[in-house]
């Protein structure tokens, strides 16, 4: 591939990095701290492409044909506009408590008499390690709906670097009709004592729901 075509490809790639960084799209793929590095590298790519203007016309600067592959992410970003990962990933392995670095310092007794907001993975980890803290306390969690057999779950994915390392956490919900799969919901309820109470537990922890409200997909879909 020669320099003018290279410049176009770089501009397109820079455009994708800029769009992903400037809009909320970044949250489907990477962590929040990657946002401004993405914008900066998008700008740098476009700036580098622009230097083609100062090149002497008679120079080829051919590069490897592999440069054509750079069109694939550009086309996918614009044609497919991939959504945040959802139930398909969650069906393939869930609630690996050990894959969460559960910060022991953060474990404080939940406030009495009020509903505590909690991440799904926090709830799973708490039930598996310090279940006593959950007894007689209402918690509120946000996630999407997944189903298995007759059961339904409020499910959320965690992410470290990028969506390629996402892993799923889920809590079974009792006492409420299942919303459609992949619908985002806010579930308020209380831990059913003894469910999911060890890291090796095959069964996930469960809650008795007092309220299930459909909500929009959060701006940051992963925990």
């Amino acid at each position: 591939m020669k320099r003018p075509a290279q410049a176009l490809v770089l501009t397109a790639l820079g455009g994708v990095a800029l769009r992903v960084g400037v809009t909320d799209e970044y949250a489907r793929y990477v962590n929040e701290w990657m946002r401004w590095p993405l914008v900066a590298s998008g700008l740098l790519l476009v700036a580098l492409a622009f230097t083609v203007v100062f090149e002497k016309q008679d120079d080829d600067h051919a590069t490897t044909p592999a440069a054509w592959a750079l069109l694939i992410p550009v086309v996918i970003a614009f044609v497919v506009q991939p959504p945040a990962l959802g139930s398909y990933v969650a069906e393939r392995g869930v609630n690996n408590v050990e894959s969460v670095s559960y910060d022991k310092a953060a474990i404080a007794p939940l406030p009495d008499g009020e509903t505590s907001d909690m991440l799904v993975y926090e709830f799973v980890a708490l039930a598996a390690t310090y279940g006593d803290l959950l007894v007689d306390h209402d918690v509120r969690m946000t996630g999407f709906v997944t189903r298995q057999g007759d059961d339904w779950f409020v499910t959320r994915l965690t992410m470290r670097c990028c969506a390629a390392d996402a892993s799923a956490f889920r809590v079974r919900v009792e006492g409420a009709e299942s919303p459609p799969v992949d619908q985002w919901v806010q579930v308020t309820g209380r831990w059913i004592e003894g469910t999911g109470d060890s890291p090796d537990a095959v069964e996930p922890p469960a809650v008795t729901a007092t309220d299930v409200t459909p909500v929009d997909e959060p701006r940051r879909p992963y925990e």
Binding site: R28, A40, I76, A77, V80, P83, C162, A163, A164
Partner: peptide
């Protein structure tokens, strides 16, 4: 296909700043 697209784009997007 959608999951594949998201994972593929995530790997690329994640690598771009490091590559630059």
């Amino acid at each position: 296909f959608q999951t594949w697209s998201t994972v593929f784009l995530a790997i690329v997007v994640q690598s771009i700043p490091f590559l630059v």
